[in-house]
Nucleic acid binder design. Structure first.
Length: 573
RNA sequence: GCGCCUGUAGCUCAGAGGAUAGAGCAACGGACUUCUAAUCCGUAGGUCGCAGGUUCGAAUCCUGCCAGGCGUACCA
């Protein structure tokens, strides 16, 4: 099923090409859009003015001709030219009703699979091992997962890859520190807490003590050369870290297809660098091996440090080549914060020089910081992700308990879990990803207004309506219901239901889940207005079922849309 | 210095070159004998950072400036 905006725009495109003899360069300008104001109808077409300019004709005349040619289309009830050349369209109620009937039958709610036959690698979350995840990791994790879900739903084959930082220079200090003053019991209790303590203390001591720093360097080199003792300890750290991360991922309902950390690419780096040097892409500079990117206006990309070690630039090239070789993806998405923009521009520039055709996208997001400044382990103002999730559930539980004290406690907890974690995810994803987030508890865990609970509550009420419908009327599955859309609230709701694919496509194409949250909020408010003002269980038979079809569709779209964002819905709240 | 980003209501933020710039929160006033009031309705609140330019039309595109954030060769 085509999206409603495509469907309405298509005849305009045809008229312009066939009757006005104008080759359309950018069909984007010839699309209808939802009317800004109900008095302008349902949709409006604004392209006549610029088109008139290109064709050298008076805009109102051109708009009039367009309108005349559109007359008679099955979906059109009324068309008028307004102002300098706006074309306002009012949809036929019968046609809207038919469309709603069709979408009702469609499990996918009108969404097609534009990604079918293509695969996409999504690199997200990617925490560093040996320290607990903190709220700075939440955006990549949540945003990346939403992109994963959306792409899967649109038919892409998605490979979710957690590119964990398991091979950094921090291991020198960790190895030495753990042997000297590590506490195995504490490690068993809470490995990441203990490793972080060891790292922080080790780092501080090494600052004071050059000999210790030197030892850390030596141990790092020994690790990298494959020393079995160091290797064993390293593995212990990494395994424990991944286990801890998995607890969080499980709690968030997140799963990866692969977790290929930096260490995975380690034994490819030497050959890769030699290859780049042989091809003449890399050259020596100040003892390091770099790819100069002057043509692109970028600083050099260092692929081997002057001490002979490799860095994340090298690893990222290797990872990119590996992914292409293994999955032959149409796209690779890297979900990281804005601080890495330069790195990825350099990486992509190198990719182009190697001749890589794959579409590479850096999906960056604004950093998260506290009102008083950045998070920093040394200042001790980091908030552990676990704490954040706990607090989200705790606050939601308080509200559930206050509003619904009679519920079974296990059910309250279940609702609180969905609501709390949903609120946290929604707060993040409803914001344009590129703006920085200033972290505040109240904002990050808002449970009212434009928030996940608003949508979840709308969903829960719809489920309640259907429970009542079954009880009171023995209502069935609504199959064969003749839908009849009438009245402004119903019309607006029906139209919004049909727009789901448009907003989903837009959110996915721009990698901006906030387009989807905006849409879902609009859908839910349209529904809540409808709910408040239009009876359905109390409406006469026929009208009742017709309106319940709308309710059902709203519920399914909310559930599906939230699911694409990783947010669960409760059946009651 | 250079690069990227941000600047929109008291606060937090949406905003696909189009008509009178939107939402949530906060404030004020209303609606539960009726499908769950975590809801709904209403009021108030704005020289879209500043100045030019392009355009029939600019929060949106271009240039300059101001303020803030991030980055800027061997951390990731």
């Amino acid at each position: 099923m085509a999206s409603i905006i495509d469907l309405l725009s298509r005849p305009i495109l045809e008229i312009v090409e066939d009757h006005l003899g104008h080759a359309v360069a950018d069909p984007k300008n010839l699309r209808v859009s939802p009317a800004r104001n109900p008095k302008f109808g349902d949709y409006q077409f604004n392209g006549a003015m610029s088109l008139a300019k290109q064709l050298g004709r008076p805009p109102r005349e051109l708009a009039g001709e367009l309108a005349a040619r559109l007359e008679g289309l099955p979906w059109l009830e009324e068309i008028e030219v307004a102002g300098p050349g706006f074309v306002n369209l009012r949809l036929s109620g019968a046609w809207l009703s038919d469309r709603i009937g069709e979408v009702f039958q469609d499990e996918r709610l009108g969404v097609e699979r534009p990604g079918a036959g293509r695969s996409v690698v999504v690199d997200f979350s990617s925490p560093n091992v040996a320290k607990p995840m903190h709220i700075g990791h939440i955006r990549s994790t949540i945003l990346g997962f939403a992109l994963d879900r959306m792409h899967r739903f649109l038919g892409f084959e998605v490979i979710a890859d957690n590119h964990v930082g398991d091979w950094g220079t921090q291991f020198g200090i960790l190895l030495v520190g753990y042997r000297r003053f590590g506490n195995p019991d504490a490690f068993d209790e809470d490995p990441l807490e203990e490793l972080e303590r060891v790292y922080v203390e080790g780092y501080q001591r090494a600052q004071q003590d050059p000999a210790l720093m030197e030892e850390a360097r030596r141990e790092l080199v020994r690790l990298q050369q494959g020393d079995p003792e160091n290797r064993r300890l390293w593995e212990k750290f990494v395994k424990a870290s991944l286990r801890e991360f998995d607890k969080i991922y499980k709690r968030l309902g997140i799963a990866f297809d692969v977790t290929l950390g930096e260490s995975f690419y380690n034994d490819r780096l030497q050959a890769l660098v030699e290859e780049l040097e042989k091809k003449g892409l890399a050259s020596r500079s100040d003892g390091a091996l770099v790819v100069f990117l002057e043509e692109e206006g970028l600083p050099p990309f260092i692929i081997r440090k002057s001490d002979g070690g490799f860095n994340y630039a090298t690893t990222d090239i290797a990872a990119m080549l590996y992914r292409i070789e293994r999955w032959d993806p149409a796209k690779i998405l890297y979900v990281t914060d804005e601080g890495q923009q330069l790195h990825f521009r350099q990486l992509f520039a190198v990719a182009r020089r190697i001749g890589i055709q794959v579409e590479l996208e850096h999906i960056w997001f604004g950093i998260m910081r506290l009102p008083e400044g950045k998070f920093s382990t040394r200042d001790g103002n980091v908030i552990r992700l676990e704490t954040f999730l706990d607090e989200a559930e705790r606050r939601a539980y308080e509200v559930v308990h206050r509003l619904n004290p009679g519920l079974d406690d296990a059910l309250k907890r279940e609702i609180a879990r969905k609501v709390g974690l949903g609120a946290l995810r929604y707060a993040d994803m409803s914001q344009n990803r590129q703006s920085a987030i200033e972290f505040r508890w109240e904002k990050a865990l808002s449970l009212e207004g434009n928030s996940a609970p608003y949508l979840q509550y709308t969903y829960a009420r719809i489920q309640s309506v259907f429970r009542k419908y079954r009880e009171e009327f023995g209502g069935g599955d609504l199959q064969g219901t003749r839908v009849c859309v009438e009245g402004d609230l119903e019309r607006k709701l029906a139209r919004t239901i049909l727009e789901f694919p448009d907003y989903l496509y837009r959110a996915a194409a721009a990698y901006r889940p906030n387009h989807l949250t905006d849409y879902l909020f609009d859908l839910a408010s349209s529904y809540n207005r409808f709910y408040q003002n239009v009876p359905f269980l109390k409406a006469p038979e026929g009208t009742r079922e017709s309106r319940l079809v709308l309710c059902d569709l709203v519920g399914r779209i909310i559930r599906t849309g939230l699911d694409l964002l990783g947010i669960e819905v409760p059946e009651q709240m």
